[in-house]
Simulated assay, not measured.
Amino acid sequence: MGSDADGDGCTGQDEHLMRAGYALDGDAGCIADARHHAVAFLDQAQADHHLPVPARARDFTQLVVSELVTNALKYAPGPVLMELRINAHAVDVVVWDSDPTVPAARAADPGRIGQHGLEIVKAVTDDLFIEQEPVGKHITARIALSDTPSSATAARRRT
C-alpha cells in the first residue's frame, strides 16, 4: 500500500469522481440508514458519471457498510462517520470511530457465534486499510466495481 494525498493508503484525493460523508447518530436505524446512503450514492454515481455498478459491487458495498458501521457502534463510544468515495474502478467505504484500538480478524472458528465482521469484510474487499488517528481510527475498505474479484481477493478466498 502506497502513500497518498489523503492518507488512507488506497487512493489519492484527486482520483475520486464522487465523495459523500455521513454522520451516523447511533440510533436503532442508523445501520439501515448507512446502507441506504450507500445505495443512493452508487445510484448517483451511475446516473451522474455513467459508472457501471454491478450487483456484486452493490451487494458487497452494502455488506461492508453494515459490518463496519455495526462494529464501530458496538465497540466505540460516541459518533461514527462514514465516507463513500468512488472512481472508475472501485468504491471505498471509510468508517471513522472514536476508539483507537485496531481491530483484528480472529482465527476461523465455525463454532464461534458472532464476531465474524472483519473476516467477512476482508473476504469481499480488494483492500483494507486501518489507520489510527489522534482520536480514534478510520477503516477504509475498497470494493472493486468489476464483476470478477481481483487476483488478491481471489487468493485470500482460497486460503
Rank of each mutant, 00 (worst) to 15 (best):
H16W: 05
R112G: 06
G78R: 05
V65A: 10
D92W: 02
G9L: 06
D147Q: 11
V53S: 09
G2I: 03
D59A: 12
E83F: 01
A76K: 02
G21P: 00
A32W: 00
A154I: 04
D25W: 04
R106M: 06
L17Y: 06
L17R: 14
S3V: 03
P77G: 07
H37V: 01
P54I: 00
V64K: 10
D43G: 12
D126H: 05
L81V: 04
E119S: 15
G136W: 06
T11K: 07
Y75L: 01
G9C: 05
R157E: 12
D99T: 07
D92M: 01
D6K: 08
N87W: 00
V93T: 13
D109W: 03
H36I: 00
D59Y: 02
E133H: 11
V95S: 11
L24V: 03
A38N: 08
D92I: 02
G111R: 07
I31A: 09
L145V: 09
V121M: 05
L84F: 08
Q132I: 00
G117T: 09
G7D: 11
K74E: 13
K137G: 03
M1G: 15
A88K: 04
C30L: 00
A152E: 15
P52T: 14
L68T: 09
V80R: 02
I143T: 08
F60L: 07
T125H: 09
I139L: 15
V39H: 08
G114H: 12
A32Y: 05
A32C: 02
L81E: 14
S98C: 10
K122F: 03
G114Y: 11
Q46M: 01
M82F: 09
A90V: 01
E67L: 07
L51C: 06
A141G: 11
V102N: 08
P134A: 10
I31R: 13
G136V: 03
D109A: 12
L42E: 05
E15A: 10
L128I: 11
R19I: 09
F60G: 01
G136P: 08
A105P: 06
R56Y: 05
S146N: 08
D27W: 04
A141I: 04
V39E: 12
L73D: 07
I31F: 02
L81H: 14
E133C: 11
I143M: 06
D126A: 07
E83Y: 04
G7C: 01
D48N: 13
R19M: 03
T101M: 13
R35K: 12
A57K: 04
V69Y: 05
A40E: 10
A20F: 05
I143D: 08
L63M: 12
A155N: 10
D8H: 04
Q46C: 00
A154P: 09
K74R: 15
I113M: 07
A88I: 01
D97P: 08
K137Y: 07
I86L: 02
H37W: 05
N87I: 00
D48R: 15
V91I: 13
V95F: 08
L24K: 06
C10R: 11
